[in-house]
Design a protein around this nucleic acid. Sequence first.
DNA 1: GGAGACGGCGCC
DNA 2: AAAGGGCGCCGTCTCC
Length: 559
Amino acid sequence: MRIVEGLPPKGSYHKVSIDTELFGLNQKKLHRPAGRFGCLTICPDGKTVYLITKDSDIEKALNRVDRARWVMHNAAFDIRHLRRWTDIAPRKPDKLVDSLLIERILWGGYYDTFALDDLARRYLGIKTEKETRKAFFDPDGVLTSQMKSYAARDAIHTWKFSGSQERFLEKDPDAWKIWSEVDGPALWAVLDFKGFKVDVKKWAALAKKNAAICEELQAKTKFKLSSPKQVLAELNAFGKKKNIPALEFLDSTNAAYLDELRDIPLVATILAFRDAHKRATTYGDNVIRDFVEDDGRIYPSFNITGAETGRMSSSSPNLQNIPAEADYRACYIADIGNLLAIADYKAQEPRLTAAMSKDPVMIEAFENGEDIHMTVAREIANALGGEPDRKLGKAMGLASTYGMSAQGLAAKTGMSLRDSENMIREYFRRFAGVYRWTISQKAFALQHGYVVTLAGRKIWVNPHSRQGTTTNPLNGPIQGGAADQTKRALGLLHKHYGRKIPLVGVIHDEIVAEVKKSDVKPFVKQLEKCMLEASDWLTGGIVPGGVDIHTGKSWAAKG
DNA sequence: GGAGACGGCGCC
DNA sequence: AAAGGGCGCCGTCTCC
């Protein structure tokens, strides 16, 4: 390893790895541009590293290698931070490769660690020390020679293992397709997301209300209500004393079990506390304190591939699990003069079930514009009698593609086991194509050890586990295909709007934008176009896409 | 005092 | 025997 302090010399570079270090980043907000520039390392050959320590040299250094393929491990991090010092325009898929995202495309479900050090170990057989990284968290730190070699080492490793990744990519054209048409474009889109405006007062009031409930309930209780262990012990003891076997022999206190016992005041107290506690903590003042920035907005970190299936995830804060109640959604708002546009794919996963299985009954239902859950409910009611129940239809449809057992469906719906078995049998009789698809998926998974989405994303499954052979082969490609679709839509929208893309959030099948009132009409039209285009791109048009868009002052707006 | 496992629960 | 898939975050508890 040769470290050269200064710019890479002028010349023509084929591929460079790039890594950025910053001082004094907040552990909870690594994705936010903050802290003090540490260094930029650029490696063009796996041997030499050019080390830039002055932020005024960043732009010049990147310009020198502009025509090369850039490799970054977690490019979102580097680009977000480097953009403080120089504009980095979106690059073509072959001009920016994120070795982290590529690794997830290649090995999602097979490995579960994807850090730079993990790849160095897997591909290069090198075990690395991580202690030096901590020194960068010191806001007043100075760049020691040890820290320089640490940074340089990361750049070298990235350059080297990206070569190994390239060989896998050459053997697997679908993986490159996913990068170049789905994950790569989505990455650039997410990098340009705007913050989501929060009604801080409203949020704080909810937090306060729930904190008060917690305090009140805890005050009249002798044991710690927030301790599952103590709660279980108390319920067991109470059950023994009062001769209530359901409590005496309870072995879990989760809501699914306690719900049936909520007539007992003690149980009701526990459930009420849990509800308020969740809201007072996960959705409490801490969200404001830790994440609302000076402009009154939160900037969640959207992970392009958070899940094995290819789904995105969100953190710091997680925008994807905000309570769906209007009270909470109403705290997420548009600024004065703006409106939110809230778009979601209608029945995204069921449509993909239809597209993958090619079940003619299901496809026809979508072609006729039917409400699929109602269709399922009606088919079942026709066979088994009774009135069509949409909720039941939805549960049944989800259950079938999640590989739920009859016991599971019975528990979920409150049906008897026998009714539940009948219903599943009848469902698969009516949707025989779906049934055949479930069989073939399981066989494929057993044979290959993976399954694929319609777009070609590979999801490895564990052939030695129940989950890997029964449920993942069904759920994986549907959930993953849905993710492909949404991410593709983000990419298409970004292609149209570029850096000015007005998005503030994405929640699996839902895209939220904040738009000037005067721009709403054309924007909504464009959004719908991109989402439907992504849908056809994925399914080849076998099933019509469906998108719902409505606008309003807050996220609670109803269509 | 920090790390990690675990129970629990919010969302799609 | 069998209680659906995918996440992230909270508090508690244990371990080092």
